[in-house]
Design a protein around this nucleic acid. Structure first.
Length: 908
DNA sequence: TCACTCACG
DNA sequence: GACGTACGTGAGTGAT
């Protein structure tokens, strides 16, 4: 026996299985087929870190077998209280077993006994062999196995992972050989082991310290007084059975010995398959790397493998000529730019890469600059030569997020043409629910190929290099691969997309044409008066100071008003205000609605509310926006993301221009800083009630169609129906409540949600809902129909065929299923509205090509904002809403309302 | 990096 | 019978 023998590791797989299943972060993990994968990930992750840490030579991963065990024979009620294993957990067992085996780890599943017993037996045998044993478990019952040679480790308990002899005493208050006695006395609700009624850990420890063992306690049962003594005496008959049930068996019949349980070489092909199925991207990458060249691409049936030897670097004019010819002859080529920045307004072109459909690819560096860089072709000269090719609409391009490339080229006077395919958008149209559509993810998912990561060649953190500083030896394969992968992804994704009518239509007629419109809107930017915003910041600052001073006075001490945690301590511990609601993690919530309610009775919450809203306005808007103004253009240039929102909406970042305040007067004033340049006005056009109109159209409900047809105020019309009053007698409150009902319908309302919104009780809310559906039966039928179809097909669609998959629509978890049902209701309305405004952007853009005095500068979901030279104001005011209204033929009128002003606030 | 809060449609 | 619930986003902050 060697001196430095590694410990024998026994893993209680079943205990980790349940624990991993209940970890909240892991509960959200699914693969794209909707199968839950969190427990698989949790268990395997634990195994990996265990192996990594201990480098064992001998080990076993033990799981409970299906069916009854000897304990059920002893006591039929054993574990009878356990609910059946959830289906989404059961499904994860087989993949875990397979992965464990593929990892080369001995997997043990023994009939008739539990995992605990197998582990106990093996630990005892190993002990006899003089081998140190480490039991990895989350189960406290295992403490009975602890000895000088046997230690427990719970990798999920960050604070106290190791349980050795001393730790058992510290944790339980008794020695390991008293643990069974302890468990028998306390009993176990979950396993349905009886124990002594009302005897918890404290009592059990007290007794055991006095009488040594359970037997000792039984013998002295008469001496124990009080109610608990009576309980003990009542339990006397039961206790030996409890003891037996709690005892881990140490003499199971096993047909292997600890020394036979050795680790084998992992089966990489199998692991690749399994990780691929589970979509564990990081591990898949690891496996692929470990497998080296031979594994790479060789199993991709019928696809061209990624072959980096076919990549070229273009440094000579002759090579450029050759490539220009090839590209001009091709019907379609993949195109990518390399730049110095992710910010399209600052990015300088460093190089371009191209790929053809036969696997040929090239990188054309034009501005790398580092010590010893090879001579490159001149950037301006190259661009001049390439301009016709790049601007051609006949020669089609495919790229990954071509909007960016288009914006960069625009800085050099080139208008990228032939923007035909974008792999990011292909992926998005195929499945908008998939969380990411970046190239690394897509390559791994569809080509089983891990790309070269930017970080690998540029480093990370503050020392990260910009692309122009990267040596061509590294930059070339990276850049050429990007183009190559883009082409191969396109071939695969486009093939899939063509099989799906609706998504293909949306891709071709909405998303692809929109790319260049968005690029333009972003580059147009919006003029913002930074000085005005900073002035507002100063005013806010002043007021914040006053609030702070008052708050400290009320709290009796200074604290950070912006910290929910400190606020929580002040409000609910020091001042002992009532806890109205808790956060999902169980902390007393300090959310707005809670503070609103508390503000009725106490002064501090009101100040906090004011503080919150002001500091939000200041930090997010009046402080930040001026800093983001582009010094050259003096304008804000946001980024619109086309492949983020599952419903088909755009999103906006850096800065987000889709959440500029409007609801409060103070917030709204921020919009006065969104101005037009000299001689121009801001024009804002927004769709009126677009989602409700879509609901009317989709449901074909007679009442709702009529309300819109007659041009009624829809919320008043709803109020009139639901509250049974004449249209002209609807009160403000009734209208407000009706509005909440209408919104609720769009969101897939529940009585609870509506009640909360209108501050009524649940029954009242339910009555309203019932009355609504009685008055608008078509809407109810539509909702039911949508849920049904969603369950049947697994997805819902918008008016234009955009698809949204609902993997949780069949979830066993009622809450998740209900959430999926609400999405099913909401997505067609929100998504159709998104389709419509995108179509409007296309139409308006087409018209704007001949209107140099009018530019589109923002999109806010149902609103388009323009900057218009005053001489064209009248024209724009007439034409823009016309175009917006013309894009869809609904069963109700589609109305766009226009406003004009010197700033965005006035334009409403 | 996560949890919380809050800005918008 | 209890539980936990409106849909879709992005950003700033504090705590870890």
């Amino acid at each position: 026996m060697s001196e430095k023998q590694t410990p024998f590791i026994l893993v209680d797989g079943s205990s980790y299985l349940f624990r991993a299943y209940h970890v909240p972060q892991l509960q959200r993990m699914t693969n794209s087929e909707g199968m839950m994968t969190g427990a698989v990930f949790g268990v395997i992750n634990m195994l990996k870190s265990l192996i990594n840490e201990y480098q064992p030579t001998h080990m076993a991963v033990v799981f409970d077998a299906k069916g009854k065990t000897f304990r059920n024979d002893l006591y039929p009620e054993y574990k009878a209280n356990r609910p059946p294993m959830p289906e989404d957990l059961r499904q994860q067992i087989e993949p875990i077993h397979k992965i464990v085996e593929a990892m080369g780890l001995p997997l043990l599943v023994v009939d008739g006994v539990e995992a605990d017993d197998v582990i106990g037996t093996l630990a005892k045998q190993a002990c006899a062999e003089g081998r140190e044993t480490l039991i990895s478990t989350g189960d406290k019952d295992m403490a009975q196995l602890v000895s000088d040679n046997v230690t427990l480790i719970n990798t999920m308990d960050k604070n106290n992972p190791i349980t050795d002899y001393d730790r058992v005493i510290e944790k339980f208050g008794v020695k390991p050989d008293q643990i069974i006695d302890f468990l028998a006395l306390v009993g176990d609700k979950v396993d349905n082991i009886p124990g002594v009624n009302k005897c918890g850990p404290k009592t059990a420890v007290k007794w055991l310290n006095e009488y040594g063992s359970m037997q000792g306690v039984i013998e002295n049962a008469d001496k124990i007084g009080g109610k608990i003594g009576e309980n003990l005496r009542e339990a006397l008959d039961q206790l030996p059975l409890s003891y037996e049930l709690a005892t881990i068996k140490l003499d199971c019949d096993l047909d292997f010995l600890p020394k036979e349980l050795t680790l084998k070489e992992p089966d990489l092909a199998e692991l690749k398959e399994l990780y691929g199925k589970m979509e564990f991207r990081r591990w898949l990458t690891e496996v692929l790397k470990e497998g080296g060249e031979e594994l790479e691409g060789d199993e991709d049936s019928g696809e061209t493998p990624i072959d980096r030897s076919k990549y070229e670097t273009i440094l000579e004019q002759s090579e450029l000529d050759k490539w220009l010819k090839k590209l001009e002859k091709s019907e379609l080529f993949a195109f990518d730019t390399e730049t110095t920045s992710l910010n399209y307004m600052e990015a300088e072109l460093v190089g371009m890469s191209f790929a053809l459909d036969n696997g040929e690819a090239a990188y054309l560096p034009v501005a790398h600059s580092y010590m010893g860089v090879p001579k490159q072709l001149d950037r301006d000269d190259v661009l001049k030569q390439m301009k016709p090719l790049l601007e051609s609409d006949e020669i089609k391009k495919v790229g990954q997020n071509l909007k960016y490339d288009m914006s960069v080229l625009a800085r050099y006077g080139i208008t990228l043409g032939g923007i035909e395919f974008d792999t990011m958008l292909e992926s998005y149209c195929l499945n908008s629910v998939a969380s990411r559509h970046d190239m690394d993810t897509l390559s791994l998912k569809h080509l089983n190929h891990p790309t070269i990561k930017f970080e690998e060649i540029a480093g990370k953190g503050k020392n990260q290099l910009t692309f122009d500083q990267i040596e061509l030896e590294k930059a070339s394969p990276y850049a050429a691969e990007d183009a190559d992968i883009t082409m191969k992804l396109h071939q695969k994704l486009w093939g899939e997309l063509q099989k799906e009518e609706g998504p293909a239509q949306v891709f071709q007629h909405i998303e692809m044409p929109l790319v260049k419109v968005l690029s333009k809107v972003e580059r147009n930017g919006v003029l913002v008066d930074g000085a005005l915003l900073l002035e507002k910041s100063r005013v806010f600052e002043q007021r914040l100071k006053e609030i702070e001073a008052k708050a400290y006075e009320l709290a009796g001490k200074e604290f950070n008003l912006g910290s929910p945690k400190q606020l929580q301590a002040i409000l609910f511990e020091e001042l002992e205000l009532p806890i109205i609601k808790k956060t999902p993690k169980g902390q007393p919530s300090t959310a707005e609605e809670v503070l609103q309610e508390l503000a009725l009775d106490y002064p501090l919450p009101k100040l906090i509310l004011e503080n919150r809203s002001l500091s939000k306005l200041k930090s997010t808007y009046t402080d930040k926006l001026p800093k983001m103004i582009n010094p050259e253009t003096k304008r804000l240039h946001t980024s619109y993301h086309q492949a983020i929102a599952a419903t088909g909406r755009l999103s906006s970042t850096e800065p987000n221009l889709q959440n500029i305040p409007i609801k409060s007067a103070e917030g709204r004033s921020i919009r006065t800083a969104f101005i037009a340049s000299e001689g121009c006005k801001i024009l804002a056009a927004d769709y009126s009630q677009i989602e409700l109109r879509i609901m009317a159209h989709l449901s074909q409900d007679k009442g709702l169609l009529k309300a819109f047809e007659e041009g009624l105020d829809v919320h008043s019309a709803t109020a009139s129906e639901v509250f049974g009053v004449e249209l002209d007698e609807v009160t403000d409150t009734q209208r407000r409540n009706a509005k909440a009902i209408n919104f609720g319908l769009i969101y897939g309302m529940s009585a609870f949600g509506l009640a909360k919104q209108i501050e009524a009780d649940r029954n009242t809310a339910q009555d309203y809902i019932n009355t609504y559906f009685a008055r608008y039966p078509g809407v109810e039928a539509y909702m039911d129909n949508t849920r049904e179809k969603a369950a049947e097909k697994g997805y819902v669609e918008t008016l234009y065929g955009r698809r949204l998959y609902l993997p949780e629509i069949h979830s066993k978890n009622g809450m998740r299923r209900k959430a999926a049902e609400r999405t099913a209701i909401n997505a067609p309305m929100q998504g159709s509205a998104a389709d419509i405004i995108k179509l409007a952007m296309l139409e308006v853009d087409k018209w704007l090509q001949d209107q140099p005095g009018i530019t589109m500068i923002m999109q806010v979901h149902d609103e388009l904002v323009f900057e218009v030279e005053e001489q064209y104001l009248e024209l724009a005011q007439k034409k823009i809403p016309e175009l917006m209204e013309s894009v869809a033929e609904l069963s109700v009128p589609l109305i766009a309302e226009v406003g004009v002003g010197d700033n965005w606030d006035e334009a409403h």
